[in-house]
Amino acid sequence: MPLIERPRTGPSATALARSPLPPERLLPLVADHPLPRMFDRWGPFPAVERVDGQDGAWDAVGKSRTLRLGDGGAVTETLVEFEAGRCFAYELTGFSDVFDRLVRGVRGDWGFEPDGTGTIARWTWEFAPRFGRGLLVRLVVAPLWRINMQRMMTAAVRELSR
């Protein structure tokens, strides 16, 4: 069962970017983009330093990998949805850093909508706060993460669209 059922109810952050590439070309590039190149350290958020346990392309529900973070922590990422050319979603669970004190997990969704000959990409993180942490996540973590994810997404989509 997914960590977060739809419709969304937890604190969330969303970023958008436009690419001249069509969705069916952009989605696999984003899904397989090396996470250490995208997730650099910013503010209170550690970088992803390496990815362990990924076998092949990130393109099938049930695939799982471990993200090793710059603060010494780790988190498990599991692909929970994948529709070629349209979307993919993953869940982050088992944080072993400060995030573990704030959230039970995160659901990340990437959506790719045609826009003329290009694509509007949407990336959303929905947080599942721990008991008593919802307000902190909603008022501090989610807004800071939104700034960070917009910065990362803009750079990644620009790079991948070349």
Rank of each mutant, 00 (worst) to 15 (best):
P11T: 06
A13G: 08
A13S: 11
T14F: 05
T14H: 10
T14Y: 11
A15N: 10
L16K: 13
L16D: 12
A17Y: 00
R18E: 11
S19L: 05
L21Y: 02
L21K: 04
P22Y: 10
P22G: 05
P23G: 14
P23W: 15
R25L: 08
R25Y: 07
L26Q: 04
L27P: 00
P28K: 03
P28S: 13
L29C: 06
L29I: 03
L29M: 07
L29R: 10
A31G: 01
D32G: 00
D32S: 01
D32T: 00
D32L: 00
D32E: 02
D32I: 00
H33P: 00
H33W: 14
P34V: 08
L35H: 12
L35K: 13
P36I: 15
P36G: 11
R37A: 15
R37W: 11
R37C: 11
M38I: 09
M38E: 14
M38P: 00
M38Q: 11
F39D: 08
F39Y: 11
W42R: 13
W42K: 15
G43V: 08
G43T: 10
G43N: 07
P44D: 14
P44V: 15
P44L: 15
F45C: 04
F45G: 04
P46E: 07
V48Q: 01
V48K: 01
V48C: 14
V51R: 12
G53C: 05
G53D: 03
G53T: 01
G53H: 06
Q54S: 08
Q54F: 09
Q54W: 02
D55Y: 09
A57C: 01
A57R: 02
W58R: 06
W58N: 13
D59P: 00
A60I: 01
A60H: 07
A60W: 00
V61G: 05
G62L: 02
G62T: 04
K63V: 04
K63Y: 08
S64H: 05
T66A: 13
T66N: 03
T66Q: 07
L67Q: 11
R68W: 09
L69H: 05
L69A: 05
L69Q: 06
G70T: 03
G70L: 03
G70I: 01
D71M: 02
D71S: 04
G73Q: 04
G73C: 02
V75F: 14
V75Q: 06
V75N: 08
E77V: 02
T78P: 00
V80K: 12
E81P: 02
E83P: 00
E83R: 09
A84G: 10
A84H: 11
G85C: 09
G85F: 06
